[in-house]
């Protein structure tokens, strides 16, 4: 498998993320702030828990919510491979330095489940809403940069892939030459990126851009959001309570 097709399959790509995050479902309809609270609190709880039984509940919760958001489980599973491999690399070392095998395994599970809750947030919240949320903490031009970067990163990635393919189809150069060629590819991508950025900027200003990307549907924090946030926090507390006092 080539690097490019590996990346396509096993790493989240922004076009795919955009595709899923702009669909509609019961879960998509929550306010981005409440989805953020949910994902963060679930991640914190997952990291905190120690009992295997309770930890096992967390991936189940993630899967249930993903199903209710009509997310493609297969895709999410392929995207979990990278965090999984990272965690594996770490966890094989732990038993060697005296950790019990079960604990090492639980850390592995925790890492993957945390990734799932992040995917859940990103795959159900449009980039523009995340940027708007981020602009509460960051200057809005920086938040807008994320929206644009997410759109153009993969265009540039596609371009790089095409250039590498074009190079390979004209013979397989020796390594030394390959290195200079790759350097050239990088340079020309940088130039292309620069020219594109200029045109994108013109396109944006000619359509009235004044330093803040407008939202087509502003979000409203509704009663169901309040209930959802309350439930997430209550669920977290119950898990922690059971962990500390019962087990």
């Amino acid at each position: 498998m080539s690097l490019a097709s590996f990346i396509e399959r096993y790493l989240p790509s922004t076009p795919m993320v955009e595709y899923f995050s702009t669909r509609r479902s019961f879960y998509h309809a929550f306010h981005s702030a409440s989805k953020l609270v949910f994902s963060l609190s679930m991640i914190l709880v997952t990291v905190y828990l120690k009992s295997a039984l309770l930890i096992a509940l967390m991936p189940l919760t993630a899967l249930l919510v993903m199903l209710s958001a009509r997310l493609p489980l297969r895709t999410v599973m392929s995207w979990s491979l990278t965090p999984f491999l990272f965690a594996v690399a770490l966890c094989v070392l732990l038993p060697l330095i005296g950790y019990p095998l079960l604990d090492a395994f639980l850390i592995l599970v925790k890492a993957v489940v945390a990734a799932w809750f992040m995917f859940l947030l990103v795959l159900t919240t449009p980039m523009t809403h995340l940027a708007r949320l981020a602009s509460k903490f960051l200057p809005s031009w920086l938040a807008d940069t994320f929206v644009l970067a997410s759109r153009y990163f993969f265009l540039i990635f596609d371009e790089a892939q095409r250039m590498v393919k074009a190079m390979n189809s004209r013979g397989n150069p020796p390594l030394k030459r390959k290195v200079t060629l790759v350097a050239n590819v990088m340079a020309s991508l940088f130039l292309k990126g620069y020219e594109r950025a200029e045109r994108v900027y013109v396109a944006m200003t000619s359509r009235g851009y004044r330093g803040k990307i407008p939202l087509t549907s502003p979000e409203r924090f509704r009663l169901r959001d309040a209930l959802f946030v309350a439930t997430s926090l209550a669920f977290s507390l119950v898990m922690v309570y059971v962990e500390v006092l019962v087990i």
Binding site: A203, S206, Y209, T216
Partner: peptide, 29 residues
């Protein structure tokens, strides 16, 4: 505002995550 230009490469001017958000970008501003 007076002169609208459609570039040869459409990717240079479709910068929003969805089609509707992109078309609405200008008017909303």
């Amino acid at each position: 505002k007076t002169v609208g230009v459609v570039f040869q490469n459409s990717d240079d001017q479709l910068f929003m995550p969805t089609v509707f958000e992109d078309v609405a970008f200008g008017p909303l501003n």
